[in-house]
Simulated scan of single mutants.
Amino acid sequence: MHDHAYSDPDRAAVHRVIAQRRDMRHFIGGVVDDDVLVRLLTAAHHAPSVGLMQPWRFIRVTDPGLRVAIHGLVEVERERTAEALGERSDEFMRLKVEGVLECAELLVVALGDDRERHVFGRRTMPQMDLASAACAIQNLWLAARAEGLGMGWVSLFEPDDLRRLLGMPAGSEPVAVLCLGPVEEFYDRPMLEETGWVVARPLTDLVSVNGWA
């Protein structure tokens, strides 16, 4: 064991929460205590970011009318996605792809409007701002699972429409609608596997040595 390694139980807990994290769609209402929400957002804010740019912005949606409006944007894109899927359209429409109206908390994660000034690590790969925000979302996701809360990442929306709805400044970009809250149970496997939509690929298919394979 390396000198800086955590104890066996601590390491096991880290790997357990990673393995048991799920993209949740089924929520049972309830609440997320304020102190828990602060812990989750703090975990997100501790995420690594390229050049320490911290491009993430978190918007907590507490207005019921705004939540309904966001659900409307998601529903429009759900129908457009179904149309784009062609022969799998009906199958897709039977999937539950969001929990916007049922979850205890609704968060929107966005890229800030000032991120273009960050050059360190982005000169050849400007998309690293998005990669950094994704790390923050993953931190929040894992922390939520550790708290016994479900979280689902919804990406079915037109970014410009959501940006206007939330009064976000030019140059900013919403990247995720996060449904967060208590769930009756966690899926044993990813929901899209359980419903037969897709089968996850094994790690061995995605690892190679010294070049693409």
Rank of each mutant, 00 (worst) to 15 (best):
120 F>K: 04
131 A>M: 04
82 A>L: 07
193 E>T: 03
19 A>R: 09
152 G>F: 04
160 D>Q: 06
54 Q>F: 08
58 F>C: 01
35 D>P: 02
49 S>Q: 02
104 A>Q: 06
121 G>K: 04
191 M>F: 15
115 R>L: 06
100 V>F: 11
35 D>C: 13
135 C>P: 12
111 L>W: 06
186 F>W: 04
69 A>K: 08
44 A>Y: 11
78 R>K: 14
65 G>H: 12
189 R>I: 09
202 P>L: 15
198 V>G: 02
197 W>V: 07
49 S>P: 08
72 G>E: 01
92 F>K: 02
142 L>H: 09
125 M>Q: 11
29 G>I: 09
77 E>N: 15
202 P>V: 14
213 A>R: 07
174 P>L: 13
54 Q>E: 04
165 L>T: 00
130 L>V: 06
76 V>P: 01
3 D>F: 13
34 D>P: 04
59 I>G: 02
85 L>G: 12
189 R>H: 15
73 L>I: 12
169 P>N: 00
183 V>M: 03
48 P>G: 07
85 L>V: 00
41 L>S: 04
211 G>K: 10
177 V>R: 00
144 A>I: 01
118 H>V: 07
211 G>Q: 10
159 P>M: 11
198 V>Y: 08
141 W>R: 00
116 E>D: 08
71 H>Q: 09
46 H>T: 05
5 A>N: 04
139 N>W: 09
168 M>R: 02
211 G>W: 13
111 L>D: 00
163 R>F: 14
10 D>T: 12
205 D>K: 09
76 V>T: 13
129 D>K: 01
32 V>T: 02
43 A>W: 06
17 V>A: 06
32 V>I: 04
138 Q>N: 13
107 L>A: 05
116 E>T: 04
169 P>Y: 06
2 H>D: 10
127 Q>H: 15
99 G>T: 00
29 G>C: 08
105 E>R: 05
156 L>E: 05
134 A>R: 00
89 S>F: 10
114 D>A: 12
55 P>E: 04
63 D>F: 13
91 E>W: 14
75 E>S: 03
132 S>V: 03
